[in-house]
Design a protein around this nucleic acid. Structure first.
Length: 576
RNA sequence: GCCGGUGUAGCUCAGUGGCAGAGCAAUCCCCUCGUAAGGGAUAGGUCAGGAGUUCGAGUCUCCUCACCGGCUCCA
């Protein structure tokens, strides 16, 4: 089945390329693979091209499909293939990468022929339910220095129902877009013109969610052997020279702040040098290890203009950062502790499926290969110990050490990078960190960087999309809203509000002269989990008519209502 | 940064060279109301910013900024 759909998608990409060649002769072909959700093909058009041209291509594709052209596999010598693609420079480049004596396979349908391993479906008529989706620029072979081609994305399914299902899913994802919900639910805003791109302003309702996240985070860290530290946001550039950031990370840093009387300061793009200064403030003994210092540390990074995206990719963000200082022989234990912690934290937020990636030694690295091997081994053992399946990304580690990245799967099946665990061989040496071992000798500690949620901004964005703006009670900006039927009942509601508030419930009151129906309508749009209506009848009995969002209505006393809320709040955090 | 697109009221969007518009939201008034929008009135704009073409530019051209879809990069 999986193979079939790949052949179908790959065939659709050939048909698209064929249509393009018919409509825009002289187009140079890049590559056109099947991908997870469909297919694409990269083109270099002789003239300009815009998204409006997709309709024309779609129409031509339909002709090709109607023609029912058989796909035929052909094996030719490399030399022969070179002649066939003589006017296709990108195809020739691909040919050059194939060993000299090997034959190559081609797929031909009617006048169109492509260098291709296959397989394909038997006829163009098999491609029935397709849709061209969007165009995009894409570097040839994905490398920034190469020319940019025009990529056309499309998708195709065996049945019309599956295509519709896919398109509906895309629509659902658009409706859940955290940027849209952030505005509608009054959670946050960005002010690119007034304040600068990629800088997040948390509104009261968003800040309430953040506070709930932070409280949970803090509590879990206190239970897990971490101490908290706090460091300033700016520091002399000297500190960042020592750390090497001014040399290696300058492109990602906001410009230096120069003082007239001399000396310059830097706004931190990372928290580690700050934590290191705390470490260096006294002589450390192996007996103190492992030292685990955590901080919700705000950093500022100059990200390229084109990469910013809502809360997911910003220029100022708060990492749930921590640095662990330990002996080399403690690394394995610390790694598995961190991994267990990550899973506990993420499942507390309702994420149960993960993609785990181990990034190993890149070409440019610091430290010795032996150190790297040991650290990679420690990471692997940690993963094994907590029985996490993982993929290896060879050579994708940071120059200073190998790392584990964990992506979480949201309710729409999309993966988001949040957690990261990195071993660092570089920075302890740069800052000449030391500890005294059990023989009274000075040694260099190992440092582990880790973030569980990643950044609060991105994590918030993921949460918004995961829950579609309908947060579980413990995270909801307003947990309960008291709704007086008329202004006569306002006093009664305000009294109950005070009771609930003093027990830590986030509660609002819908005052004002709007009719009940309108107030309810408004609260539903804001996804307030509990609405408690109080009119003359309730006031007389001393109760509330409580309705859960999307649920039934029941009468509760204020005390019963509080208990109900408290129970659900503690259950919601995934606590036992 | 690169390719393509977009920028009109707080939000969603009409307006293709000739008087700046609608719905929602906001404010005020009437209604004191029973579970998915009661009625009326008012206010709200440097049409992203700048330059140009034109008798005349929201509309056409160029530059800048920002955003959107991707590429590259990444928490």
């Amino acid at each position: 089945m999986k193979k079939n759909i790949e052949a179908l998608r790959h065939s659709a990409s050939h048909i698209m390329a064929q249509a393009v060649m018919r409509l825009y002769p002289g187009t140079k072909l890049g590559i056109g693979p099947a991908i997870e959700d469909g297919f694409y093909y990269d083109f270099e058009f002789p003239g300009s091209f815009s998204e409006d041209d997709l309709e024309k291509i779609t129409a031509e594709m339909k002709n090709i499909i109607k023609e029912g052209q058989p796909f035929e596999r052909q094996v030719v010598s490399k030399e022969e293939a070179g002649r066939i693609f003589s006017d296709q420079p990108y195809k020739k480049e691909l040919l050059d990468e194939i060993p000299e004596d090997e034959d190559v396979s081609l797929y031909r349908n009617s006048e169109f022929v492509d260098l291709c391993r296959g397989p394909h479906v038997d006829s163009t008529s098999r491609v029935k339910h397709f849709r061209l989706l969007k165009t995009a620029g894409a570097y040839w072979k994905g490398e920034e220095k190469n020319p940019m081609l025009t990529r056309i994305y499309g998708t195709v399914f065996p049945t019309g129902g599956e295509l519709d299902g896919y398109l509906k899913m895309q629509e659902l994802a658009r409706e859940r877009d955290h940027r849209k919900l952030g505005r509608e639910l009054d959670l946050f805003s960005l002010h690119p013109e007034e304040a600068g791109p990629g800088l997040v302003f948390w509104h009261p309702r968003g800040a309430a969610v953040r506070r709930a996240i932070e409280d949970f985070w803090l509590n879990e860290h206190q239970r897990s052997g971490y101490e908290l530290v706090n460091i300033p946001h700016v520091a002399r550039s000297r500190l960042w020279e020592t750390s090497g950031h001014l040399e290696f990370y300058k492109d990602h840093m906001y410009p230096l702040m120069e003082f007239e009387q001399g000396g310059s300061y830097v706004i931190k793009p990372m928290n580690c040098p700050g934590h290191i200064l705390v470490y260096k403030n006294s002589i450390r003994s192996y007996r103190e290890f492992p030292i685990r210092w955590a901080e919700l540390g705000t950093v500022y990074r100059y990200e390229k203009p084109g990469v910013l995206h809502g809360l997911m990719r910003v220029r100022g963000f708060t990492q749930d950062d921590a640095h662990i200082f330990c002996r080399p022989d403690q690394v394995r234990e610390e790694i598995s502790r961190v991994l267990r912690f990550i899973i506990r934290m993420l499942s507390g937020f309702g994420f149960r499926e993960y993609g785990v990636f181990l990034s190993t030694r890149p070409e440019k690295f610091v430290g010795t290969p032996k150190e790297w091997d040991e650290a990679e081994e420690a990471l692997k053992e940690g993963l094994k110990e907590v029985s996490l399946d993982y993929e290896v990304d060879p050579g994708e580690g940071v120059f200073y050490g190998p790392k584990i990245d964990i992506k979480i799967k949201d309710s729409l099946g999309r993966m988001w990078q949040c957690s990261t665990v990195q071993v660092d061989f570089n920075i302890p040496g740069k800052f000449e960190l030391e500890y005294v071992n059990d023989r009274g000798e000075k040694e260099t500690p190992v440092m582990i960087h880790r973030a569980l949620l990643g950044s609060l901004e991105r994590f918030f964005g993921v949460l918004i999309e995961h829950y579609g703006g309908r947060f579980p009670l413990w995270l909801a900006p307003v947990q309960a809203e008291l709704v007086p039927v008329s202004e006569k009942n306002l006093e009664y509601c305000l009294g109950i509000k005070e009771t609930l508030e003093s027990s830590g419930i986030r509660v609002g009151v819908s005052a004002g002269s709007d009719k009940l129906g309108k107030k309810i309508w408004r609260l539903r749009k804001l996804n307030v989990p509990y609405m408690a209506v109080a009119g003359d009848r309730e006031a007389e009995e001393g109760v509330l008519s409580v309705r859960k969002l999307g649920g039934d209505q029941m009468k509760f006393s204020p005390e019963e209502f509080l208990k109900l809320l408290q129970d659900e709040i503690s259950r919601g955090k995934g606590e036992p």
